[in-house]
Design a protein around this nucleic acid. Structure first.
Lengths: 101, 101
DNA sequence: CAACCCTATCGTACATTTACGATAAGCAAT
DNA sequence: ATTGCTTATCGTAAATGTACGATAGGGTTG
């Protein structure tokens, strides 16, 4: 990618906002979050039933949402229950609000 | 990418939101929009001076923002004046607001 | 029309994303 | 310990994204 070696010094919160936006940049992930919000929580398998995507693909999207901090998983053997991470959700909400004035 | 051939039928606005989020998914584009908001408008050259990026790279980012509808360009020969596209900006704002409840 | 300024586009290189099937890993129950 | 269920991870393939330098194009001015 021939990137500049030095890191660009962005303004406060710019990168945090970009990171959240990136997590939201795929319609499937938006849809997953909408689903989570509606159901309050769900298991990976539920999503595999809802979307015409492979289980591994869903798992990958969940991983990205988790990495962005927008969701969190809780072990409910043999399943994993995913919920919105309310704390970070609020942070994201605030960042977008501020950004759009 | 071995994509599914058929298009997934997402809920209303899901793809529109993802498209806006994608435009915001790079810190440089966020920074450009913040700059545009502060200055109300600017020329490509201004941004080339502000960011440590090649002119072609800046131009590419502007193109993506334009494709997403978030900015618009106006010919002011020999320059091009870029401004926020207020109409679509409002739409994006509303979509994010709705999404975050 | 020639020269100039500014910006877009082209060509290229490499990283990242998205998708799949196959396989591994974690845990409960038999 | 083995089986079964669920989910994550691996390996792979193709598309997309990000960056650069070089070049082209559009429009004004000399």
């Amino acid at each position: 990618m021939k990137r500049s070696l030095e890191h660009i010094a962005y303004e406060e919160n710019t990168e945090a906002l970009a990171k959240f936006a990136k997590a939201l940049s795929h319609p499937t992930r938006i849809a997953i979050l909408k689903y989570l919000d509606k159901q309050s929580c769900c298991f990976t398998g539920d999503l595999v039933d809802v979307f015409p995507l492979a289980q591994s693909t869903i798992s990958q999207h969940l991983k990205e949402l988790k990495n962005a901090g927008l969701i969190q998983g809780e072990l409910k053997p043999p399943k994993i229950k995913y919920c919105i991470n309310q704390e970070n959700w609020k942070i994201a909400k605030t960042l977008f609000q501020q950004f759009f004035n």
